[in-house]
């Protein structure tokens, strides 16, 4: 059906292109340069790539010092270390002074798989979206990861970008427009809106097909690739036009994208039924990606079920 590719491959390839275009781009890694796909950049620009070792707090401070000196810094490691280990460093040294640092994390979410709960970061959106000055991006696939990397390099200021470990379906086209802060409509529909972010966008598309074929429900699908700032306008318009919202994210439901969307709706004039698909407030466990998606409620079937719940409450 869809071609598959890893988002981090897109990130690594794009970094090299950015490095060729701009000589003020510096890349930092913390002993996961291979996993985060930083090595190509390092091979082409050895003088602009620094591996700080297993020292994420220092990496974050080094990024701040470089940015204070005119560099645009891409600082990358696994999501759990990037946001959790170095939280206070991001807050004090990057967010507060609003520096041009891009914290780009791979291995976010439960699909990390076998490594288990210690490495499955399910709280990073919550941690980053609450920080003033920090914008949060979660591209849906390979093509978007590429565009998002270019876009956050272009826009000055702190960004957090999250990507997963696994290969995920390529659901957008190379030439599709991409704009930070703007959701894109991947499927028009009238009965309910499915809003996904990251790898859950493809599950939303699958769910929309299932709803259409099996239940005669016409679902709209929105790709919310920027989680902060949220595209309030398109959220409210979707609520108005379809009368029901289902959100889907590979993150704890309590403080993620869906929470943000529920806040937007609560303060709008369209208090439509809503259901958030995501992981309950629990730690993950070891397993295959698809097994974990199934067990923790992240499949298209779960989205379909939630859509029915929303439709019944209308």
């Amino acid at each position: 059906m869809w071609e598959m590719a890893k988002q981090r491959d897109a990130y690594g390839e794009t970094l090299v292109e950015l490095g060729r275009k701009r000589d003020n781009i510096v890349v930092l890694g913390a002993d996961l340069a291979g996993s985060c796909r930083l090595k190509k950049f390092g091979e082409e620009f050895p003088e602009r790539m620094f591996n700080v070792g297993i020292a994420e707090q220092n990496m974050t401070g080094i990024a701040a010092g470089l940015a204070l000196s005119g560099k645009t810094v891409f600082s990358s490691t696994f999501a759990v270390f990037a946001t959790g280990r170095a939280y206070d460093q991001i807050r004090q040294s990057i967010a507060y002074p609003e520096l041009d640092v891009k914290i780009v994390a791979t291995h976010a979410g439960i699909t990390v798989g076998g490594d288990g709960a210690s490495h499955q970061m399910l709280e990073d959106i919550a941690l980053m979206r609450v920080l003033p000055n920090v914008k949060v991006v979660a591209p849906a696939d390979y093509n978007e990861s590429r565009k998002a990397t270019f876009a956050i390099a272009e826009e000055e200021g702190p960004f957090y970008m999250r990507m997963g470990r696994s290969s995920v379906p390529i659901i957008t086209e190379k030439n599709d427009p991409f704009e930070l802060g703007k959701a894109t409509v991947l499927r028009e529909g009238e009965d309910v809106t499915l809003i996904g972010t990251g790898i859950m966008v493809s599950e939303c598309l699958k769910a929309a097909e299932m709803l259409n074929k099996q239940h005669d429900v016409d679902a709209k699908v929105l790709n919310m690739s920027t989680i902060k700032p949220l595209d309030d306008e398109s959220i409210v318009r979707s609520a108005r036009d379809t009368g029901g919202i289902v959100t889907a994210e590979e993150h704890v439901v309590s403080q993620g994208m869906g929470s943000g969307i529920s806040q937007v709706l609560a303060e709008s004039n369209y208090h439509v039924p809503m259901k958030r698909v995501g992981i309950p407030n629990v730690f993950g466990e070891s397993g295959e990606s698809d097994e974990l998606m199934e067990k923790y409620g992240l499949t298209a079937e779960h989205i379909v079920e939630s859509a029915h719940d929303v439709l019944e409450r209308r």
């Binding site: 510096v26 620094f50 707090q57 220092n58 974050t60 401070g61 080094i62 990024a63 701040a64 010092g65 470089l66 940015a67 204070l68 000196s69 005119g70 560099k71 206070d88 460093q89 807050r91 004090q92 040294s93 507060y96 002074p97």
Partner: peptide, 18 residues
């Protein structure tokens, strides 16, 4: 910007690296 202790040396090192 400093205040949360233990962070300034990293920031200074980043500046020196630049």
């Amino acid at each position: 910007s400093t205040g949360s202790l233990g962070q300034g040396l990293s920031v200074a090192a980043g500046m020196a690296l630049a």
